[in-house]
Design a protein around this nucleic acid. Structure first.
Lengths: 358, 358
DNA sequence: TCATCCTGCTAATGCGCATTAGCACTACGA
DNA sequence: TCGTAGTGCTAATGCGCATTAGCAGGATGA
C-alpha cells in the first residue's frame, strides 16, 4: 500500500525476460548494451526481445536506472528567492526561457525546486529531504546566495553552475558584465554633459548590485574625481519610494541611475506627480530591462542584460561540466557575457545651468 | 566511472550506522520510522543516531527512497506543443505561474519535461527513455492531445490531470468554460444590435476550440435561427491572415469573434491598412487574453480565461488524486472554471444599416 | 518455575536495473 | 587429442533505502 501509485504494477525487465525466454540480464543488454556487449547477442535473440518489449510497451524505470548508477538527464533549478512563482517569476521568466530552450536542445529535463523549505528565513539546498540529488547537476538562481551555502556546494562535489557572478572560490558561473555596461552608460551620460550623478540601488549585497555600483563609481573616477566625489548612492526601500525620491531631489543630481526597473517606474510616477519632467528636468537611466508585464512605463534608456542567453549559457556550461569525457579547465568555468545597452528616451542633456543657487 | 557525479561518494545510511554503532535498519527507522516503530527505540539511541546524522550532514538519497517504494513529491509537467520554450512559452507562462504557486504551497517539486522526444512529428509521453515515472503524478498541457495517448495514460494507471477539457473517458481534467463565456459574449453583441456574426477560429480540433464554437453557435441558435444560419465560421491560417481578412469582409459580418489573440492583432492591422475602422466599421471580440508581451494591440473586448487559477486547480486536483487517504469520486475528477469577460473598446453597436445594397 | 510479554534492536529481503565474471558449448587448428 | 578461441548467454551482485520477521535477554505474572 505504500507503492507510489498506479493500480497495476509497472512491467519490468524480468517479465520481459520471461516472455522472451531469456534472462533479465539479456534484456538489459539488449536495451542498453554497448556495441561490444551486443556483438555477443545474435540478431535473432535481440529482435525477439525487442519485439516483446514493443508489444508489452515496456519502459525502463528511470528511478531504478538512476540507482543503478546512470544519470537521468535531469537538471535541477534551484531558486534562492523564496517568492519564486508569484512575485519574482516575472524576473525569472526570461532566464527560464533560455534555460528551457537549451534544455530542449540538449535533451535534458528540468527539475524545478518549487517546494520551499524555508528555514530560518532562508532557503537552502541542504535540507533533510532535499530532492536535489535526483538531478545530475543543478543551476542556482537568485540575487543573493550565502557564501557558506556555496562553499558547501563546492565541497559536496555536486556539479552545479551559479547564474550570476559569485565571489566564492571554486564556484562555476555565467555572469553578465554589469560593471562594464554601467560604466558605458555613465560615459554616455557624461558625454551628454551630466556632471551630477546619483545611483539608486537595491538594498542588497548581491554581486550584481555591487558590480553595477563598481561600474558606476569606476567610470566616474576615471572621468572626473570631483564628479565622483559629488556622486550620491541611495539605497531604495521598495516600500518607501517617497524617501528615495526626496533623497534623489536633494542630491542635486541631473541624472539618476536606477538599478531596479520597478523602482524606476515608481520614481517616474512620483516625478510626474510633482511636476518634474523626465527627462527634461532629470534624466533616468535604468540598469536592467523592465519586465514585460509592466506596460505603461516609459521607454527608459537602460541596460538590457541578455537574460535568456544567460540562462542558456549557464545550462550549456553545466552540461559541459557533466560530460565525463570533458575536463573543463578552471578558466572555462567562469563566463561573462556582454551587457547590451538600449537607447531610450530618458537620457538627454541636463538643463543649462540656471546659475548656482539664488 | 559511470557514477552519476560527485567526486566523493555520498554518505549513506550504512556509514551512519557504523559511526553510531547500530544497524542500517535502525538508522532508517530513526529517520522515517512511524511512531509505533520509534516507540521501540529508546531516546538515547535515537539521539545518538541523529547526532551522527547531523554531524555527517547526511541526506537521504531520493532515488533510493523512491525505488524503495516512497513517492518523492514530484509532479511532472508535460507539454504536447513541441515549441515549448520559445514560441509557446508566452501562452503557458500564466499557467505555469499558477502551477508553481500551488506546488510551492503543497510542497511539491516540478519536473518539466523539456527534452523533446518528437517522434513522427508529435510528442508523446511514451517513449523508451521517458522520465515520467520519476514523478508521482503528471499534468498534461497542450491544445491538442490525441485520444489514443490519453487512453494509454488512463490505462497505465499513472495518476495525471489534463489541463483543459478532454473528451476521452476516464481523463481527469480542470477546464475553462469557454462555451459559456463565448455564449455570453455573443449575447452581449446581440444586445448591441449585431445580427451578422463571424467566427474566426484556430484550425484545430482541440476541445477548447470546439467549445468556443459550440458556445458561439448555441447562443446564436437560441437568439435567432436566421442569424445562426447567416453566421460564418472561418478557419484562420496564421500564415495567411490576408485570406482570413478577405473572407471576413465578404461574409458581411458586423462583428468578428476571433479565437486567437495573435490573429486578432494581425487582422486589426490589416483593417487599419485598408482604412476599415475597428470598432466603428466592424466590432472585434477576442476569445482569449492577448499575451502580455504583445503590447500595441488595442484593448479588445474579450474572454479572460483564469489561466493561473486553471494551473493551480489542476495541480490541486492531482494532489487529491495522489492522496491515498482520499478516494476522489468520479464527479470530482472533472472541474470547470468560469471564464471572465473583459469589457474592452472593440465591441460597439454596428453602423446603422445604410439600406440594403446599392 | 515456566510461559508470556516487552524491550531493543538486527538480519534479510526487495525495489528494477546495470554490470561483470564466468559457464557450457562449438569450432578450429596443430 | 588436446588446447584455444569464440559464441551465446546467465547467475550473482550491488546501488541506498524501507520494511518485516524475528532474536536475545530481561521482566512479569500465575
Amino acid at each position: 500500500m505504500t507503492t507510489t501509485s498506479g493500480s497495476k504494477r509497472r512491467i519490468t525487465q524480468r517479465q520481459i525476460a520471461q516472455l522472451a525466454g531469456v534472462s533479465q540480464s539479456t534484456v538489459s543488454l539488449v536495451v542498453n548494451g554497448k556495441a561490444e556487449a551486443l556483438s555477443r547477442i545474435p540478431a535473432a535473440t535481440r529482435d525477439r526481445v525487442l519485439e516483446v518489449i514493443r508489444e508489452a510497451e515496456y519502459v525502463a524505470d528511470p528511478v531504478a536506472r538512476s540507482l543503478a548508477g546512470h544519470g537521468n538527464h535531469l537538471i535541477g533549478v534551484f531558486t534562492y528567492e523564496p517568492a519564486f512563482p508569484t512575485a519574482s517569476l516575472d524576473f525569472y521568466t526570461s532566464l527560464l526561457t533560455g534555460i528551457e530552450a537549451e534544455a530542449e536542445h540538449l535533451g535534458y529535463d528540468l527539475l524545478l525546486f518549487t517546494s520551499a523549505p524555508v528555514q530560518e528565513g532562508k532557503r537552502s539546498v541542504f535540507h533533510p529531504y532535499s530532492r536535489i540529488r535526483l538531478a545530475d547537476g543543478c543551476l542556482l538562481l537568485g540575487r543573493e546566495m550565502e557564501g557558506e551555502e556555496l562553499e558547501r556546494m563546492v565541497a559536496s562535489g555536486f556539479p552545479f553552475v551559479a547564474v550570476g557572478r559569485r565571489d566564492t572560490p571554486g564556484v562555476p558561473y555565467v555572469a553578465v558584465d554589469y560593471a562594464a555596461g554601467t560604466s558605458a552608460l555613465v560615459e554616455r551620460a557624461w558625454e551628454h554633459g551630466h556632471r551630477d550623478f546619483a545611483l539608486l540601488h537595491v538594498d542588497s549585497t548581491g554581486e550584481s548590485t555591487r558590480d553595477r555600483r563598481t561600474g558606476f563609481e569606476d567610470a566616474l573616477a576615471r572621468l572626473d574625481s570631483a564628479a565622483a566625489a559629488r556622486a550620491t548612492a541611495i539605497a531604495v526601500d521598495p516600500a518607501d519610494h517617497a524617501a528615495a525620491w526626496a533623497a534623489l531631489r536633494s542630491s542635486g543630481a541631473t541624472v539618476a541611475f536606477i538599478e531596479a526597473p520597478a523602482d524606476a517606474i515608481a520614481l517616474h510616477k512620483l516625478a510626474g506627480a510633482e511636476g518634474v519632467s523626465i527627462p527634461d528636468d532629470l534624466s533616468f537611466v535604468v540598469l536592467a530591462d523592465p519586465s514585460r508585464s509592466r506596460e505603461g512605463g516609459p521607454d527608459f534608456t537602460r541596460l538590457s542584460p541578455p537574460r535568456a542567453r544567460l540562462g542558456a549559457e549557464s545550462l550549456a556550461l553545466l552540461s559541459r561540466l557533466l560530460d565525463p569525457e570533458l575536463d573543463v579547465p578552471e578558466h572555462q568555468r567562469r563566463l561573462t557575457l556582454d551587457c547590451a545597452l538600449t537607447d531610450g528616451a530618458t537620457l538627454v542633456p541636463p538643463r543649462p545651468t540656471t546659475s548656482a543657487s539664488a
